[in-house]
Design a protein around this nucleic acid. Structure first.
Length: 942
DNA sequence: GAGTTTGAAACT
DNA sequence: CAGTTTCAAACTC
């Protein structure tokens, strides 16, 4: 409402924690933020105050890209977090902090987040009705608890949300007691709410309580675990189940604990404890919770710093490349699982993480289960694996990480092989990205099921630049901790660095890869708002470790970043898609299996130097490359044949490669997108795939905000195409293939009710999407979890809730590990970052059996599709430029989509989801797993 | 560390 | 759409 100046003032003040005037009060800021006008303003100019600007965006376009935002958000500069949030160091401070509403910034950010989702709006209304005075708090809650919200949406009634909001927000902001009371009341009323709100509890808990909680939780878990074990005949399954169950268990435990807690609270035992947030607990808690906790503040400064640092670390949102992350950053996320399931301390960073994290276990088990079918990849491929990470849907930025990652052979393997790889990657990515996000861990542990967590994490991080309480746990982890520490140091000096002469930074940054494994940019003129910037292109914020000058790729300039991103995407929907798509062949999983989406154009480097993006990504050149004299050690251009995708089939031996290569991944994607455009309503998606993904993610967290957004993505179409090809396997030209695909995809989309079981059967694990980006897809899948009928419509209309449900499904102990396993198959590259982002590409698609390798191409395309779909107009210019124009006529025909074609199409859909990425944050993996789980339920039903 | 080379991205 | 320019990373010295 007010001029930006006002906002700025607030922002400035906030960090200091000086008691802000009335105007600064959260409520006031909230109101201000609400005004659409502000939103508009915020976008560009106000780089100074990120939070303010964002709200408008939210309204205008519900964060069109939740995913995108997430990704960007993920990498949060410590600086922003610290300044903005003004974390309370002591309990008292926390209270003061809350009371003073000193950090307008944070609230604003949160508001933005909260506003984004429609669902939230609804909730907000409810909340407001209930607690008119706590608007700010409300906002915070949303921000903090995207997860919870999601949960609520998905599983439960809205009430929980209210409860949560009341409990969480209030404590942090103002009337702690009130909030508590409200919480209690609500809790009593709604058990479900209580469950969903486990996080909310944290604020109330004292250290002792936290311990108690943890212990009780562990015990509870142990019980459950035993029960589950008994259920399961096979150990492997047990393990998987445990992981999955752990999540659910955790929830259940929380529920119980919460009940008890409420009882106590009623007796007045905990009244003073509202603020306290047990660190350990925090770890277990979702980001949102953490965030709240932080506000509450009993966390030691050091921890806070660490947390902040972790949080601030750049994240490879979309890239899955986990390696680096895996090694170091994953722990944070893992912590929860570790606590619950594993007590063993991580011996080595990489290994320990891998081993310890339930997620890992899950993956492993999943792999085993799933396939079982999966050939043991472990052998020697580890190294390849490493390269792979870059693979599916990876941004080059992420790729870098991968290289470093190699050290953890085990982890690598995991990552490599499956979509699961993606999952891991995503998971690991998440971890990396957000050391903070315990949620991630949970997610991971869950088998990547719970997107909500991820979303939340990302959201929280993004929105608030939150300090992640999670980081606290990280401290416990030896290796990780160390890593982080270094980061923290860098972070601490963040401002200084920024201010320090660019040269200095540059030097420092040059050639450096941050601990996360992400490249550091060194942009001087582009303000890190162009694709020249690795960070920006990877969908992540620049970090303190970056040596960039006049950087706008920071949380503070979120609006600017998003706008810029959208602009770029409008020009090229694939701009933020993972550059490297990995295709995994059953037989082989090698760097060679992955390819650069657009291919390189090397003239002098012969693809033997890092100038070559293919080489840099540790992937071989493909027919799509236009390089001259290719000597790529990972695979020469002519050598690579895309057998899987019909499209790829087109690729012919390349003499020149350039001419021969008929379609690059991008082209394929474009084709798909085009078809879809024709078929799909334009309305569906945001231009940028990433955005879509983001939206999806967002949706997940928020619960259905963007149902519309979740349309069948072009990616899916691609997938479908590939799939179709598989079925048909005719060496058709791309155009034909595309047509077929389109048809298939269309059918998928159209099909209101589809029997997923069949798809699964047919598809197998493939359906799962590797990447975070997959999330959207996941959404589609989610429906599956529910009643057998997912309609394509669901894909289009799937709401966050659906996703959430899906995630929940995964979480369910009962869910088959297989599902997760299936997810593993997917390889996405998020990162999409990671995890987001993105995977892109997940090739995974290949079923060993089916030869889904199509997916590889598809993956990337899928991502694009998602974004592109709406965009028909958007042409993705592929380097290759040759593009087969897909026959539109088919599209229409197919448009009605018959269920018959659907299978393949549906499969694609699943895949498609993952494809996008960057995103998800890294996110993807969960989605995939979720999807799988969803599928399983269906199967069960079936 | 400075300067050059390289190829992608952006621009025209 | 092709050609040119700009940019930042990669590389060399």
């Amino acid at each position: 409402m007010d001029s930006p100046d006002f906002t700025k003032t607030k922002a400035t003040a906030s960090p200091s924690s000086d008691s802000p005037p009335v105007q600064e009060s959260p409520v006031f800021s909230f109101i201000n933020n609400l005004s659409p006008i502000k939103t508009v303003k915020a976008t560009h100019i106000a780089p100074a105050f990120p939070g303010l600007s964002s709200p408008p965006l939210v309204f205008t376009s519900p964060r069109v890209n939740p995913y995108t935002e997430t990704s960007f958000l993920k990498r949060r500069s410590q600086h922003s977090e610290l300044s903005g949030a003004g974390i309370p160091k002591t309990h008292d401070e926390g209270k003061e902090f809350a009371d003073s509403a000193a950090d307008p910034v944070k609230p604003l950010t949160q508001l933005q987040l909260g506003l984004i989702t429609d669902t939230r709006d609804c909730k907000t209304k409810n909340f407001v009705e209930t607690h008119p005075c706590s608007s700010s708090g409300f906002v915070d809650e949303y921000l903090a608890d995207s997860t919870e919200v999601d949960c609520v949406n998905s599983d439960q009634s809205v009430n929980p949300h209210l409860e949560h909001s009341s409990s969480v927000l209030e404590p942090s902001r103002s009337g702690l007691i009130k909030s508590k009371e409200l919480t209690l009341t609500l809790g009593n009323k709604n058990d479900n709410a209580t469950n969903s709100r486990t996080e909310a509890q944290a604020p109330f808990m004292t250290t002792e309580q936290a311990h108690e909680y943890n212990q009780g939780k562990q015990t509870f878990i142990a019980k459950l675990t035993r029960s589950e074990k008994q259920r399961n005949d096979e150990l492997r399954f047990n393990e998987c189940t445990n992981i999955e169950s752990s999540l659910s268990v955790d929830n259940a435990f929380r529920r119980e604990y919460y009940q008890e807690f409420l009882d106590r609270g009623l007796r007045g035992e905990h009244q003073d404890d509202y603020d306290y947030c047990p660190p350990s607990l925090a770890g277990a808690l979702h980001n949102g919770q953490l965030y709240e906790d932080e506000n509450a503040g009993s966390i030691p400064n050091r921890r806070i710093e660490n947390a902040v640092m972790h949080a601030s670390k750049r994240r490879c949102l979309r890239f899955e490349e986990a390696p680096p992350c895996t090694s170091g950053k994953g722990d944070g996320s893992l912590s929860l699982l570790e606590k619950v399931s594993n007590s063993e301390p991580p011996t080595s960073t990489v290994e320990s993480e891998m081993v310890e994290s339930p997620y890992v276990d899950l993956i492993t088990s999943t792999k085993t289960q799933t396939a079982a079918s999966l050939p043991p990849r472990s052998t020697g491929k580890s190294r390849l694996t490493v390269s792979k990470p870059s693979g599916i849907g990876l941004h080059l930025n992420s790729i870098v990480n991968a290289a470093s990652v190699v050290r953890g052979a085990t982890s690598i393997k995991l990552a490599d092989r499956y979509m699961g790889v993606q999952v891991m990657n995503s998971a690991s990515i998440n971890v990396r990205r957000c050391p903070n996000s315990l949620n991630v861990v949970e997610k991971d542990s869950a088998g990547g099921v719970d997107w909500r967590n991820e979303t939340e994490t990302s959201v929280a991080a993004s929105s608030a630049t939150t300090q992640s309480p999670h980081s606290v746990e990280f401290e416990h982890h030896g290796p990780i901790h160390e890593i982080r520490i270094s980061d923290s140091h860098s972070i601490d000096s963040y401002e200084e660095c920024n201010q320090s002469s660019p040269n200095t930074k540059r030097k420092r940054a040059s050639r450096n890869i941050d601990s996360d494994g992400c490249k550091r940019c060194n942009c001087r003129k582009t303000k890190c708002l162009k694709l020249y910037c690795d960070c920006f292109s990877a969908g992540i914020y620049c970090d303190t470790t970056c040596a960039c000058q006049e950087c706008f790729n920071r949380p503070e300039y979120e609006d600017t970043v998003l706008e810029t991103r959208q602009k770029i995407e409008s020009r090229n929907p694939l701009a933020f898609a993972p550059k490297v798509v990995e295709r995994e062949d059953e037989s082989q999983f090698t760097p060679a299996s992955a390819r650069h989406k657009r291919g390189c154009n090397c003239k002098k480097s012969m693809c033997l130097k890092k100038y070559c993006e293919c080489y840099q990504a540790s992937v071989g050149c493909s027919n799509g490359c236009r390089c001259e004299g290719c000597q790529n050690a990972y695979g020469k251009r002519g050598e690579f044949v895309d057998v899987d995708s019909g499209v790829s089939e087109e690729v012919i031996s390349d003499k020149d490669g350039t001419e021969i290569r008929e379609s690059t991944f991008d082209e394929k994607l474009q084709m798909v997108a085009t078809r879809k455009d024709s078929n799909d309503s334009p309305s569906l998606t945001p231009l940028t795939p990433s955005l879509q993904c983001f939206d999806d993610t967002h949706n997940v967290s928020k619960s259905r905000v963007l149902p519309a957004i979740c349309r069948p993505s072009p990616q899916s179409a691609l997938t479908i195409i590939s799939h179709h090809k598989n079925s048909t396997r005719s060496p058709q030209r791309n155009s034909e293939n595309s047509d077929n695909l389109m048809d298939t995809s269309k059918g998928l989309l159209d099909v209101g009710s589809y029997d997923w079981r069949e798809d699964y059967e047919n598809i197998g694990l493939e359906t799962t999407s590797p990447r975070c980006y997959a999330v959207p897809t996941t959404c589609h899948l989610t429906p599956l979890s529910g009643p057998g009928s997912l309609a394509i419509t669901s894909s289009a209309s799937l709401t966050t809730r659906d996703l959430t449900n899906a995630s929940q499904v995964q979480l369910r102990p009962g869910s088959h590990c297989l599902l997760s396993g299936s997810s593993l198959h997917w390889r996405s590259s998020p990162v999409t970052p990671m995890h987001r982002f993105g995977g892109m590409k997940s090739f995974q698609g290949f079923d060993s059996e089916k030869g889904n390798h199509d997916l590889l191409q598809d993956d990337t395309p899928e991502i694009l599709k998602d974004t592109s779909i709406p965009i028909k107009s958007v042409k993705v210019s592929s380097p290759n430029k040759k593009r087969v124009s897909p026959p539109h006529s088919h599209n229409h025909e197919l448009g009605t989509s018959s269920s018959g074609g659907l299978r393949s199409g549906r499969k694609f859909i699943l895949k498609a989801v993952p494809s996008f990425p960057p995103l998800t944050p890294c996110i993807g993996s969960k989605g995939s797993s979720t999807i799988q789980n969803m599928n399983n339920p269906l199967q069960d039903k079936g």
